[in-house]
Amino acid sequence: MIEARNLSYTYESENNFKTSAVENISFSVNNGEILGILGKTGSGKSTLVQMLNGLLKPLSGEIILNGKNITTDFKNKYEVFSKIGLVFQYPEHQLFESTVFDDIAFGLKNQGLEKPEIHSRVIKIANMLGLNENLLSRSPLSLSGGEKRRCAIAGVMALKPDVLILDEPTAGMDLIGKNFLLKCLLDYHSQEKRSIILISHSVEEIIEVSSKILVLDKGKSVYYGSPGGLFKKDIKYLESLGLNPAQITQVMSLVKAEGYDIPESVLTVNQAQKEILKLLEKDGATA
């Protein structure tokens, strides 16, 4: 389990002005849980994420992984990196090896694993992410956009980290690409039973898969709890956090304004379907 306690980080801007990027953030992710972190650009998500795997040292606060403080209780930062896997935004920009196989194996080779182990891990993870075996011998630069993204993510997943953090994994993808990637991530989650932290600015993407949600605004935590609790926040509040509500949320909010008994924010189509069924059954009539 990974736990963040009162994390803070400030950075110095051009004119030596100290700006707080992240202030007093706390959360925990138990084994096998998925935490969704929401926030618009500039809310501190990326800074937080780099602290979580040890790239950035927090100004104050600590990060505890399975009872050990990542700053003080590990041999070196590489040990932390192998336990907390971080996938950056647009990870396909880091592909460099001559074959897909080698790129996915890069992290494993750095860990010093034996060749047979590397081979089996790469094949397994490539399969999990929908990368056919015939793609493994090709140059990663010859893949399609979606395949490149999955290849890069595979490179981190292959390390079998205790916690996998993905920073906006579906950024720039079309809906089919997004859905396929999210499906692969959920498959990984159900097979490996490891913790995942998903960062996004899209509510619909995260709400259905997360067991817990953390919402950031200007570096501070403004909501930390179950996804269901987010439904209770009204639409204007979500808008003020830069979480542009999905169309379905806006539609149902207009329906609610007419006096119907609907939660403050309906965040997904599935939930809207349930709410409408409830209302129709309440009236006891079906056509």
């Binding site: 089919i176 169309q247 379905i248 809207a272 079906t286």
Partner: peptide, 19 residues
Amino acid sequence: PSLTPMQSSQILSFIKSLG
């Protein structure tokens, strides 16, 4: 498959499927 329906379209299809 290459056309992804809008959420409004999805909810209307659902209501239509109820009859």
